[in-house]
Amino acid sequence: MTRQKRSHHKLKRAVAPYLYLSPSLLIIGLLMLLPMVTVIAYSFQNSAVLRRDPSFAGLKHYQAIFDDPVFWASLWHTLYFTCMSVIFHMTIGMAFALMLNSDRINPTLRNILRVLYILPWLFTAVIIAVIWRLLLEPNGVVNSILMQIGIIGSKVEWFSSPQTALHAVTFANIWAGYPLFMVSLLAGLQGIPKDFYEAADIDGAKAYQKLIFITIPQLMPIIISISLLDFIWTMQVFPLIWITTGGGPIYSTEVLSTYTYKLAFSSYNLSQASASAVVILLISLGLTLFYIRYQKAR
């Protein structure tokens, strides 16, 4: 190779990665990073989107949101919904993973159950919402079973009574989301070296001691990273709540995403909705930074 040819080749090697990445960068830049800047700009404008020459609004829209009791209620509901979901996703996922991993069950049964336990994962949020609406109808099967065994005395309107609605949507979301933990923890369990347990057996460790001193510490990295991701994603849940309760009755299941959506597309107050969207973005971003730091530290 001549020197000229070689330097030409080098130049090609240096430019090539940017060429390969350019379509992706263009899409992510134009359709993700730019809109993020836009939504922040909207939140400081009066009549954003609706008017061509919106005037500067300062922090007015943020002020309006922070003065709105419904916003604070939504924040609280989001927190409750998210924390309960993550805790129970983890607990149920862990319980199922440990049970499936036990050597007390027959391998065929284990394989069948593994497929069946994953089932809730295979359904779209909208379909999950519709299924739970049918199950929890006042005249539906859940009420009829609960009344038969005497847990409730009369029909409960799970989704349309302010006392139960938030618990009911949280329950449906718990049902829908545990398989992520189960699958990840099951994979994690299979990665724990067998000799750890053999050594513990020699020392005469009990089953619960092995769980606390070997299994859980070994699974900790998975538990933390999946919990963080689950938290971030659950915080953003929209369709499940939109279809089951629509945020009602009387705001009792209003979460940040439904609150923002209504501001934007029911009240057409896109500026204020943008301010609310920015608040959600900041919360997510904070958690994401935490997640990335954790991943890098590992």
Binding site: P35, V39, A264, L287, T288
Partner: peptide, 11 residues
């Protein structure tokens, strides 16, 4: 992890 609802309004 960007919330879809955040991008919805500018989109």
């Amino acid at each position: 992890t960007i919330p879809p609802i955040t991008l919805l309004i500018p989109f």
